[in-house]
């Protein structure tokens, strides 16, 4: 009986007893979730337009952040370093299209997937060669990101919001909103969706696949850069960051591989679920459940919605 009490009653009693702690946990989860969403968004962009599951998305986050910090260390002013990094992400997109996607056009998806493994190891090696393998500190202040925290009274306690987290949430929201408008309302956005739906039909109306691929990889690169800055500011910039890409996997399963709203909702559900689970149910299972809870949440959702929350329902005519 004791275990049932601890699993089903005690956590809720705690939530009720200290609502400030609950809100704090919720906020922490939300912030983590927003960052997961951003990573997942990078995957979704590329998957939508080219059907490639880009294993290198995680390392692109590290590479972008590393380039930014590395340039600054070499004496480049922060904003100039940011501009150069954006330029480098564009060159990366062009390079990927010319050297990887174009020679492999019409190959099975699994081949392209393997090619993104290759890209991962190239970026690790190349990044290390130029900027070294030591962890670095993100130049958040130099980029004008706020520091410190806002504390406010809540239900007899304090809730503390890191300013950088607030900034991260706002920036992520703006990015997501502009990407959504871009996809839905512009000619290039329409072309992107067209390519995602049918390559040959897109070609027949004169859409250039090469151009579209460069655009999506560049967009994914920008998302990676934003993620790298935000995530780097919370911990540090090192190759260990790459594993956050693994966090995106349950988010994608949850949200559906082709849906931008899905990536956002999935990220928030996973982020909040993880933090709440760890805080209230963690002690019951000896803590450390944060690392695997995301996958369990995703699996449970899969039972009920195999196509993900917002994924396209797969209907085959027979």
């Amino acid at each position: 009986m004791d275990i049932l009490y601890k699993a089903f009653i005690d956590p809720f009693m705690q939530m009720g007893a200290a609502p400030d702690l609950f809100v704090q946990t919720l906020w922490d989860g939300l912030v983590a979730g927003v960052l997961y969403s951003l990573i997942a968004l990078g995957f979704v962009l590329i998957f939508k337009a080219s059907g490639v599951f880009n294993f290198a998305q995680g390392i692109m986050v590290v590479f972008a952040a590393l380039t930014l910090v590395g340039l600054h260390e070499k004496g480049v002013p922060a904003y100039l370093a940011l501009a150069i990094t954006i330029g480098i992400m564009f060159l990366l997109a062009v390079g990927v299209e010319k050297l990887m996607l174009r020679p492999l056009v019409n190959q099975p998806d699994i081949i392209l997937f393997m090619a993104t493994f290759g890209l991962t190891y190239f970026l690790i090696g190349f990044g290390e060669l130029i900027f070294g393998g030591d962890p670095k500190v993100m130049i958040a202040t130099q980029l004008g990101l706020p520091r410190g925290a806002i504390d406010f009274k809540f239900a007899g306690g304090f809730v503390s919001l890191q300013k950088i987290d607030i900034a991260a949430t706002i920036i992520a929201s703006i990015m997501v909103a502009s990407l959504a408008i871009f996809f839905q309302k512009t000619r290039i956005g329409r072309a992107l969706r067209a390519v995602a739906d049918s390559h040959k039909a897109a070609l027949s109306v004169g859409i250039s696949l090469e151009q579209i691929w460069v655009i999506v990889w560049f967009a994914a690169g920008l998302v990676a850069l934003a993620t790298g800055i935000m995530w780097g500011a919370r911990s540090e910039v090192s190759f260990a960051l790459e594993i956050i890409a693994l966090k995106a996997l349950p988010v994608l399963i949850l949200g559906g591989f082709t849906s931008i709203p899905g990536a956002i909702a999935g990220g928030v559900i996973i982020g909040v679920g993880e933090k709440i689970g760890e805080f209230y149910w963690g002690p019951l299972l000896g803590s450390g459940i944060e690392t695997w809870l995301a996958y369990v949440i995703a699996l449970v959702f899969l039972l009920f919605r195999p196509q993900g929350l917002f994924g396209e329902k797969i209907i085959e005519r027979i």
């Binding site: 969706r193 039909a201 004169g206």
Partner: peptide, 27 residues
């Protein structure tokens, strides 16, 4: 071979791709 996720209108608009030239900024 249609763009299955898009509406009939968007499909036909996609046919105008090459006729539209204004840059991304304005879009």
């Amino acid at each position: 071979a249609l763009f299955r996720g898009m509406t009939a209108l968007d499909n036909i608009m996609a046919g105008r791709t090459l006729k539209m030239h204004k840059n991304l900024f304005w879009q």
